[in-house]
Design a protein around this nucleic acid. Structure first.
Lengths: 196, 196
DNA sequence: TAATGTTTGAAACACTTGTTTTAACCTATC
DNA sequence: GATAGGTTAAAACAAGTGTTTCAAACATTA
């Protein structure tokens, strides 16, 4: 792997772990075994590097995208949402860090926004949530209000994303892999939020 | 209000807003109109000041405590949980910042832990979650597994705490006070997670 | 009032952090 | 091999950040 790519991947690690503000360019260079000046040489600065990290991370296809592919139209809403929720939970407990990057970035941006949040919001998050909304509307039928659709979507996301809270889940259950062990149980409960 | 108290309250503002690492002692002093050296004079340093902030914030009685008081034993689990959830949602949308402090600290600690997280976890959070667990166990009866009880509690907290995400909720619904407007709707959905 | 202890304020200190500079080091092309 | 263009490395810079210093100001009490 060339140096630029090594820096990019070290940056992904650092930014997803600490968030934009607490990430340190010196730590990124150390991880990449690169000189401090390399970030500015290759990327133009911390913010520009973060921008490339965002582009990379939000283009990683997650397990859900792989399962669903182009079958969105032919899938029943229940089936689609079942996959959506299980994939989400899998990401929170997966050994593969690739699947966690996106959500880690989102969580950091929600708590300590970077200068790039408006862009991420507009181009990465709103479109994704809009697709979820569409499917939930299909599931619930025409008589359901817009507010109720929004509420259902957010309750679903809230239930899933909470399990990225490693210290919380471990502190509360005393278990290291509670989510991985209980994906079916959790997904079953969450899908009921939507179907009942 | 004496200077020490003014600093404490400015610190509460700053720490709950930015979290421990991104809070700036200079900003706290500016807010309190105090000299930079005052923090070290009165409190002994940034971390010691944060410690006092934690003690203060976690001792503010929230709306739930006020309603329930000593009636925990005589209340039906359903009633107790109904209050618990509605109070939580009220905190997320309340005009009164007092009720938000605790949750803001928790969220920051989960995402970017401070040196005080282990203490907060042990003395402030685990006991509170244990009480919730107890009530949920009472509600679900003896045949329910420990993992299912834990799952239900975390799904409940996850649903509630998600609504502290101002940028998320506003970006997704396009509304400034979605939660305040829809507390009953949201609480109704969340309580179903537990009762069905 | 004088003496004592407490509080305040300006400056400086030591360290961190993103960026820039400048020279040395490759490497491909003629 | 000489040259030019791209790459790397060490050092320095400027701004930020928690802490400390020390003398002045203030308040309290004998």
């Amino acid at each position: 792997m060339d140096r630029k790519n090594k820096i990019l991947h070290a940056a992904i690690d650092e930014f997803t772990d600490k968030g934009y503000h607490l990430a340190r360019v010196r730590d990124i260079c150390d991880k990449a075994k690169a000189n401090l000046a390399a970030i500015n040489y290759y990327f133009g600065g911390k913010e520009a590097l973060y921008h490339e990290v965002i582009e990379f991370v939000f283009n990683i296809p997650d397990p859900f995208d792989l399962v669903v592919k182009d079958r969105t139209q032919e899938m029943k809403p229940e089936e689609y949402l079942q996959h959506w929720i299980e994939s989400f939970l899998e990401c929170t407990s997966s050994e593969n860090p690739l699947y966690k990057y996106r959500y880690k970035i989102i969580i950091h941006e929600m708590v300590s926004p970077s200068p790039l949040l408006p862009e991420i919001m507009e181009h990465k998050m709103i479109p994704r949530l809009a697709r979820l909304k569409e499917i939930v509307r299909k599931l619930k039928g025409g008589q359901t209000t817009e507010d109720e659709i929004s509420a259902l979507c957010m309750l679903t996301v809230g239930q899933c994303i909470y399990f990225f809270n490693k210290p919380m889940v471990e502190g509360f259950t005393g278990q290291k892999d509670f989510v991985g062990k209980n994906i079916k149980l959790l997904a079953g409960k969450i899908i009921k939020t939507l179907t009942i």
